[in-house]
Design a protein around this nucleic acid. Structure first.
Lengths: 309, 309
DNA sequence: GCTGACTGTTGATATAGTCAACTAACTAGT
DNA sequence: ACTAGTTAGTTGACTATATCAACAGTCAGC
């Protein structure tokens, strides 16, 4: 897909900006008698415990020859020790000496202090939260997805608004729905929050890597017999799709409904939301009826599903 | 204020991560016959049109001596021209030759392509939006505030949720209010959106530097006589405070109410929100009555203010 | 006119980056 | 078991970059 020039400009502006930031933070390191590349090697060795020269060279994008000389210097200074050769006698395993380890801890403290004093300290609590959130977001957008554990948990303060924000935006971009949808879900979430604790209700946030990856809630159905729960607002963040998060959320919602004494779960969805439908089918829901309607600026096919518990 | 170690760890992880990202993007530049520092000087000269050696050296954090040699090389290559000396004959103004300018445009295209293909292209539209938003946020948190123009505009899709999210979080962190507050404002925003177009209503987002800096809305008052408007949900982002944004929002809301034929504006606030109170006073509002109440997990002193138009 | 500060140049030196050649050790295929 | 190809690490040669210090020319303010 064609990339928006304004986005490119913003990304490049950020890269220039952050290059300077990193430069400023690294400046403190220069005061020590060790060069930046030495510090990086020491840091890498300290983090890994032990490693061969080539592993580190690859990790830090250094020339093997340069690395060789650098290691020699560090060994001379008593910072790095050559471990006895392992099975493969080509490679020489390296580790920090106790002196090197002290240096490693010192570097860590310096870097911690630089990050803390240079970046976080001037900010208030909200600013720190925003900064860390934004960094986490950039990392998870640009890095390969790792295998962080998935956590289901209740929502925290501010997250109802977040869910409205994300879903309003998401369905606008993906389905072309207009502001009516956000209006609707604002009311729906308001109703969820206003609902009494009994009959039972429950909302689950799927969290991965410190970020909201999806959500769903269960609320007693209003337009139906007692003993009926309604499953609402299931969604998964695009960046977290394909990891079974929607499935986990629905399973948890069903489990909760069952132990809460509900006999039936109903839900309303649109047939254009294909992956949601698959999840409902997989969880045992059956299609009850369909209704064409015009909502959110689109022609939709609403579907009513139900699961007998 | 003491800095949370987990925040420090996240910031440092991001710095390491982004150092690599920048390294990868700069790699493409190495393929050209010009070094990275040459490219940076050419870029800086191209951006500014003309500049002296020392200006650029300072901007790029380079040694003056190194800069001198680098400029000499570029002049020899016909990329940079020395302009006739200006009033101050110590400094030598520099500019790109037409050849240098072509190179500058080429570098720009390369960098654009690297940012576009390397970072943005793999993302979907939401991902790109999230990335750019996060970058803008980091920049505005860490950079000195500039003097970007303040724009008042209607809300866009997703921003109702955003306002709920931000205010829920903000008043939790600043005032210690609990989830009841978010519950309340979710309902209030739902009511705003559900209200008909007549009698007139209006919501303004204060935008600065591409970010939501504050907001307020006007809605016909329900519990009062016809001809009365209610001003609600005024807030300014902490990062944007002290720039008269709240004042601008209230002024716009009052202006709107006046031209819409309202005779009176009322509002409800809490006396702990000091800066809001000053804005209301400044706009001519008068305190009508106060009420102690316990809400949002706090003992509060609610205030009713009114402005006759 | 004197002082102190600033701009740009040059020399000296150390480190960093790059390329290529080389040895020793290993792997896989026959 | 032999060979070809690969990998780890070292070394030499060379260039670019970084850093510090000294220096001349210029300027502003007193």
């Amino acid at each position: 897909m064609a990339v928006n020039p304004a986005d490119i400009a913003q990304v490049r502006a950020f890269n220039r900006f952050y290059t300077r930031i990193i430069g400023l933070l690294d400046e403190g390191m220069h005061k020590s008698p060790h060069s930046l590349s030495e510090a990086r090697v020491i840091y890498e060795l300290g983090k890994r415990g032990h490693a061969t020269s080539s592993t580190i060279a690859e990790e830090l994008d250094m020339d093997r020859g340069q690395m060789s000389r650098l290691v020699l210097r560090l060994v001379d200074q008593g910072i790095v020790a050559v471990l006895p050769r392992s099975r493969d006698r080509r490679s020489t395993p390296l580790a920090l000496t106790s002196e090197g380890d002290a240096l490693f801890r010192h570097f860590n403290e310096m870097s911690d202090a630089a990050a803390a004093n240079g970046l976080l300290e001037p900010l208030d609590e909200l600013g720190r939260r925003d900064l860390v959130d934004a960094m986490r977001r950039i990392e998870s957008l640009l890095a390969e997805p790792g295998d962080e554990p998935l956590i289901l948990r209740p929502h925290r303060i501010g997250e109802i608004g977040w869910l409205i924000h994300r879903q309003g935006l998401l369905y606008h971009l993906e389905q072309g729905w207009n502001g009516e949808f956000e209006t609707l879900i604002t009311r729906i979430y308001a109703e969820y929050e206003a609902a009494p604790a009994n009959p039972p209700k429950g909302l689950w946030i799927a969290e991965q890597d410190g970020q909201v990856a999806g959500s769903v809630f269960i609320i007693p159905a209003t337009e139906d017999a007692a003993g009926t729960a309604q499953l609402r607002m299931l969604y998964t963040e695009p960046a977290f799709r394909g990891r079974g998060i929607g499935k986990r959320l629905v399973e948890e919602a069903v489990r909760f409904s069952r132990v809460s004494g509900y006999k039936r779960i109903i839900l309303w969805t649109q047939d254009c939301l294909v992956s949601a439908r698959r999840i409902y089918q997989g969880a045992g829901f059956a299609l009850v009826r369909e209704d064409k309607h015009h909502s959110f600026g689109a022609d939709l096919n609403g579907q009513y599903w139900a699961l007998e518990l």
